[in-house]
Amino acid sequence: MKPQTIQSNSNVILKKKKDKKKQTNILVEAVVVLFSAVIFLIPFYFIIINSFKTSEEASRMSISWPTEFHIIQNITEVLNARNGMLLLAYFNSTVITITSIVILVLVCSMTGFVLQRRSDKKTNGIAFVFISGLMVPTAIVPTIWVLDKLHLFKTLPGIILIMVAITIPFAIVLYRGFIATIPREIDESAIIDGCGGWMLYFKIIFPLLKPIHATVIIISAVNIFNDFVHPLYFFPGAENATLQLTLYNFMSMYETSWNLLFANVLLITIPPFILFLFFNNRIVAGMTAGSVKG
């Protein structure tokens, strides 16, 4: 045999091997995709399909196709339940989320700026106190006591300030990390031009923080919007509905009407889903920020 044929032979074998490997890779991928679709997507399919059904059909809790499309009736009924409680909840949750975020962005970017730029012992101590809030659980009843003393218990301003307080550590970590990438030369030239601390911050630094503002806004929006525990404790009462509290209350109210319950779940899941559609990458970037460098 000529050496050339041997080489081409072995090439064919190699190619066959590669093709086989490719095939198994595609097969493995298909299996994994199918598997994760079943695990992660069926629950959502289940929510959607059951929110379309009538009460009797939904009580079977199956994923079969609905025989009757009842989505409009279901949503109207959920929205009208308890004198339009859900609409009030939408209003409250929106006000809480937006107001807390405005405060957070302002207050935490200032703090992150100072904490990053100064590096003395005292500043590090302050930073530690702020950041330890990521781990420390909220002290429930004492917080109620403090809120009560300030006449803020069961009020919108009260729950807004609580949401700000518990989100401060996370937002400060993000801002501090981002501000570290802004060169100090920018500060120095502004100082030479006569800028003081506040002016430097508002005129120069704050506008440079746009990308991290976006991240903080989106992630806090999802977290505050979805929060159940803090409104449960600090914002109780019939008029003080938030979306998560309302959903929880509907759970006992609609024990047998899964169609209405899932219509409610659907309504509550739409806002985070929209954020996810538009800002998926930014959300992921924010949640992984700092985790790699440590």
């Binding site: 100072v114 400060i172 100082i191 003081g196 601390g197 506040w198």
Partner: peptide, 11 residues
């Protein structure tokens, strides 16, 4: 310049 007054609101 990096005045502590900037962190008063959060604090």
């Amino acid at each position: 310049v990096y005045t502590y007054t900037l962190l008063i609101p959060a604090a």
